[in-house]
Amino acid sequence: MYGEKAVELIRQLHRSPDGSLPPFNEDGIRQVLEEMRVLFEQNQADVNKTVDGAPGLFPGVQLRHAALERNKRCLLAYMFNRMERLRAMRWEFGSVLPPDIKYNLSEQEIQWFSRYNKSLAAYMRSIGGPSGGGLDLTQDLKPPKSLYIEVRCLMDHGEFETEDGTILLLKKDSQHFLQRSQCEHLIRQGVLEHIL
């Protein structure tokens, strides 16, 4: 049936849990494009015949055209949603992607990501005027309640150097009171847990 493969792409993306990115399904996309090409050629032929005077072909053309449009929408949705996820990851993991996610990206997506990085960095640098030195927007996604927070170590992480140069040992089941800005990324990585 027409459109089946395109919906399958969407489903595949939908099934994968939030915060992860399934491999870019190049094969699926090619198949959809192939289907679209066939549909288009058939339509072209039928339209030519109709122009030549053959009756009764019009409904078929319309059906195929609808299928074409639908395939196109599905493909765009697939690309767009992947991009959205990729953008969320930029805010979550920072400018360097984990290798397993990078491996799942297509060539164009990698290009887009690096361009997005560049423009975000340029924007962040520009905040606060030319001498302001910029502001890291990815730091506090929600306004922080206090400068320091209490965190608990979930795994052995080894030594960790804070910005002021002190070194502390992050060992499983130890509890620390640290500056929020310094341990936020470790919380996102799942090394630390924020205790309320």
């Binding site: 400068l147 320091y148 002190t166 070194i167 502390l168 040992l169 060992k171 089941d173 130890s174 509890q175 620390h176 009171f177 640290l178 500056q179």
Partner: peptide
């Protein structure tokens, strides 16, 4: 007072020594 601290649970003397050794540098 924003005093930075690290809490380590200790079951016995042996662990006290280990914990101190691990954290003593800092």
């Amino acid at each position: 007072d924003h005093v930075q601290y690290t809490i380590v649970p200790i079951t016995g003397r042996q662990e006290l020594e280990n914990a101190f050794l691990e954290h003593s540098e800092q």
